[in-house]
Design a protein around this nucleic acid. Sequence first.
DNA 1: GAATGTTGGACGAAAAACGTCCCGCTATGC
DNA 2: GCATAGCGGGACGTTTTTCGTCCAACATTC
Lengths: 340, 340
Amino acid sequence: MRKIVEIQKKLLPDLLQVMEKRYEILHRIHLEGTIGRRTLATSVDLTERVLRSELEVLRAQGLLDTAAAGMTLSESGRQLVEEMEPIVKELFGLSALEEAVRTAFGLKRVIIVAGDSDTSDHTKMELGRAGSRVLRDSLTAGDVVAVMGGSTMARMASQFATPSQMKDNWFVPARGGLGESVDYQANTIASELAKRTGARYRMLHVPDHLSEEAYQTIMQEPNVREVVDMIRSARIVVHGIGDAATMARRRKLKDETKEELVKDGALAEAFGYYFDRNGKVVHRMATAGLRLEDIEAAGIVIGIAGGSSKGDAIASVMRFGHDDVLVTDEAGATEALRHV
Amino acid sequence: MRKIVEIQKKLLPDLLQVMEKRYEILHRIHLEGTIGRRTLATSVDLTERVLRSELEVLRAQGLLDTAAAGMTLSESGRQLVEEMEPIVKELFGLSALEEAVRTAFGLKRVIIVAGDSDTSDHTKMELGRAGSRVLRDSLTAGDVVAVMGGSTMARMASQFATPSQMKDNWFVPARGGLGESVDYQANTIASELAKRTGARYRMLHVPDHLSEEAYQTIMQEPNVREVVDMIRSARIVVHGIGDAATMARRRKLKDETKEELVKDGALAEAFGYYFDRNGKVVHRMATAGLRLEDIEAAGIVIGIAGGSSKGDAIASVMRFGHDDVLVTDEAGATEALRHV
DNA sequence: GAATGTTGGACGAAAAACGTCCCGCTATGC
DNA sequence: GCATAGCGGGACGTTTTTCGTCCAACATTC
């Protein structure tokens, strides 16, 4: 059963949403016994006219009887709702989890894919796909998108698919070199995204470990300056989330910095900043690009991360409070909720 | 798996068709390796523009790569097609059967539901539902619909559902009393259909076994005349199909008539006429209503019958050659094909 | 019997789908 | 090396569908 639904998800991307909506309508009517169109509209959160079209479909399917007092489920409608009840949980169980995470962290939108990225490569891929879909749907013409690095972001980029060219969009790395391997660098990812969409991109090459003067000098370079300005004006920011210890190791931070991080309770990392349990910034990487205030000013900030092991890091960054959208997996979401 | 698809069929009636179409597109591309839009359009029988929208969806799902030489399946597209191959047969197997029956009898359209009405009540219901859907979709404003009797027709009527009122339609019995029990009479069915749709109906009460004079007299009655005229002008005719022996028994024909039927090789019955193996009319019931020439003149003639046992009767009536649409079940269709 | 809430019809505005044509590009065959 | 056929994709006017909004007719309830 699982398999056919997976296939359908690919072949008819918004099938499940329609299905869920219609089930919700039937379910509501089932609960109320008999209910009027307007009342129903507010309770399932549809405009009256849209609901009406839905009802026409359901009526045409013979699932719905309608009288002057309101609408009732027909026998086969009632039967359908009852048959669906167990299936619904499996099909749409994640929606409930999404809603829970959304309210817990006060986000605009949460997308959760099934599984655990820690143990399943398939889930990792799906996480990437889901992330790319979110980004695609968020894009409007002319947007500048700042992306971060990391393996999750790389997978997101490799899964990105667009129905049409996006010639007037820009992809830029959110921050300069952060010591990642080249495949996972923000620069690489920005360029891949651009390549896959027909959009344009800029790279930002800032050597690591610059002295303050050198940094200031390089920032005066017109072409560096230009990219940085573009980055800072990004309307959309997409970033992964790491746990602090792992990131520190991978980026080969100095031992004393690591100790400092531990002392400050650094738990999570995102766009070059380290966060403690409460979402407070306790450290920042020394490189150019997006500053905290730019993140606050960005239109849409999208965080992508999954896996049970990243649960607390996700929670920590979400507490930071400037993300709008979180894309994660079942395990990550469940774990994050335990750290609210 | 079966179950969830059944549910989806009810909740999203044209889901499977869309799914099939998209699969067909992917499959074709898979076969060709790389193919252009225009060539593809003719080969899957879509206009260029419509195909293009479909392709955009598929591309957005990352199933499709596109180059200057044409389109190719992406890795995950190829994977999807291969995964689907076994499933397709189960999901869309009936479409192939439909097409086979359609060409075998030169029909406009064939709808086949899964199962065997002889052994499954569920299939009987589905047959009724399918029939009602066909009728609904065939209806246009102002149409007069002539319906016959029988248990299948009764189920069709009881399953009829419409999204909106049909105030300017008429339902009439195709022919007068044919000695059926009241639930299965054409009159009853016409009235039920009218009731379920908000349409109007007329009944035709003609006693059985009238003498010729009495028949002529009653036909002069203005209100009888009026109904008969309306029947004869019906744009849509819907009828069941019975096997001759059973119908003769049920209608309590005289023994000599039965013998005559046997002698003439009567195999099937529909709208009061008996047909032999070749679809030739060998007998007609003496009652008022639709004549053969009216059937020939009707816009749409819909036959509904299922069950393995009715296979040859179905074949016989289809050979008669004036049906446009056949609604049957898997067993009936398979059996009918063996009698082509 | 009035008031309230119901469905369903109607209609114009907005959006989506569609048919059609064209352009620039590339692979291929000569 | 060049002509050419076939490719994807952009563009645009038209048609169809969807949607918001208002209203009429009707049943139910108080």
